[in-house]
Design a protein around this nucleic acid. Sequence first.
DNA 1: CAGCGTGTTGAGGA
DNA 2: TTCCTCAACACGCT
Length: 275
Amino acid sequence: MPELPEVVTVCKMLKPEIVNKTIIDFQIFYGKLLQRPSISEFKKKVINQKILNISNFAKYIVIELANDVLISHLRMEGKWIVEDLESFAYPERHLEAQFILNNNKALRYYDTRKFGTLELLSKNEYKNIPPLSKLGPDPTKVNVNAVNFHKIVTKSKRPIKTVLLDQSVLSGLGNIYVNEVLFEAKINPNTPANEISLENCGNILKESSRILKKSIEQGGTSIHSFESAAGVTGNYQNYLKVHGKSGNNCVYCGSKIQKEFVGGRGTYFCPKCQK
DNA sequence: CAGCGTGTTGAGGA
DNA sequence: TTCCTCAACACGCT
């Protein structure tokens, strides 16, 4: 489900519902969700802590508690939702964990495919240890220097699309948006990264920032299973120009959009505009 | 029934 | 050693 704009949307939706609430209990139904610490230690630490803030760090959700920090990654289909204790927005069999809050509501985690993660880290080190420490710059938050970016990108001979999906190079692009970015920058997804010019690196950065920010304004993209909260969906799917559009006419030249696989991921592009 | 998917990691090979 | 590819994770949908 979520790429960066969807994660930002989830944080915005949850913020007014959880900030200043206190966790009074925690239950977990799918043990592999929790990376660290152990379930018993996690429970002991988390109960009675007040929630101070929620924000995204690239595609990770960071929930700041009074003493510690919760880090969650939704991977493909994870969903955090605040619900009344007795109601369930999704099939209960996909409910993996819940924080009971002090207002008779629960902050719940559902995940159909069970790829998502949750961990509790200390406030002073969470940015300096994996997974957050390994992330490259987030183009929606930082003005990435094109010369530095070009130096890093051109170290690899892998297809440029694969390199852009590597979160240690640039954080925030997922498969949907990388298809859109390369289309707007008019770069073939299979181009070896070491052949990308400085100018094109600049274009990639410019389009990444522009497209991700526009999608954030639209509340993200609602395809497959994305819902930022029960019943709330984004609109960016209405702005997609190539992702999922094989056979459609290119909006710039009219050629048929093609699909192929690059690095094992579905890749959509215009064969004429993206030589 | 087979193939596909919004993400990431670890194993194994070059 | 470094770089890279690909299977694996798990499940619903076409």
